[in-house]
Design a protein around this nucleic acid. Sequence first.
DNA 1: AGTGCGACCCGAACGC
DNA 2: TGCGTTCGGGTCGCAC
Length: 272
Amino acid sequence: MPEIAEVETVRQTLKKQILHKKIKDVKILYAKMIESDVKTFVKDLINDEFIDIKRRGKWLIFELHNHYLLSHLRMEGKFFLKNSTEEILKHEHIIISFTDGTDLRYHDTRKFGRMNLIKKEDLEKTESIQKQGLEPGDKALTSSYLLTKFHHKKLPIKSVLLDQTIISGLGNIYANEVLFYAKINPLKEAGKLTANECELICKGAKEIITEAIKMGGTTIKSYTSSLGVTGRFQQKLKVHKKAGQPCPTCHKPIQNIKVGGRSTYYCPNCQR
DNA sequence: AGTGCGACCCGAACGC
DNA sequence: TGCGTTCGGGTCGCAC
């Protein structure tokens, strides 16, 4: 279940493995995964090479000479580098073969991930990237920024934290953890948060995301990022998926509720 | 404009 | 080797 920390781990790992390898062939085994024209996607990748890998929120941005390959892993997308001779697995949907006999394979059991190949000059008008809000690590992410963004919002803060146009990259797991850190009830109306509470959200987001990236991400189910790097941040989770277990602070049971249709974990005693 | 919700997927968990 | 149903997760598109 990759979130921003997993995406960052994948970015760093792949950068060491696939830059400057010439692309020989591209196989699309599940065409709906490609948002742009599939034939053009294949044609434009062949004979090019990845020269850098960037990230914006949960989007991976593979830079080529004249294009960007945008990739969103959603819940279960993973990249693996394998020898081209290896058998293609059931859930491997996109195979990018290099001239050195290796493949970059995109594996996704749920088929939820998406890829898009765009011309470089089109990045500025690509909405999925441009509408991303501030990264948790951005200095501009301050309590006054959040106060402005939350102003007049009637939705519960938990739902608003998942809005990628405000803070880019916070997913369900980290939203739960940030609210626990900030001692804020997930149902509290976003527009009613105080400056102090916004400050705690900033600090929590920065601290939790930094730590999660350091640890290689979170492992829920069997998620393994590319090349066998396993996230260890799961051990640090305080409330997510901990329904019924004692709160690390007050030892009262963690509760699981639905907020905006999404599973939400919190301590009703600490997060009033 | 802001909000709510179904659709997209399919393996796991659950109910009987 | 039980089998049908429900759930979850991020994002988009559509309805209101």
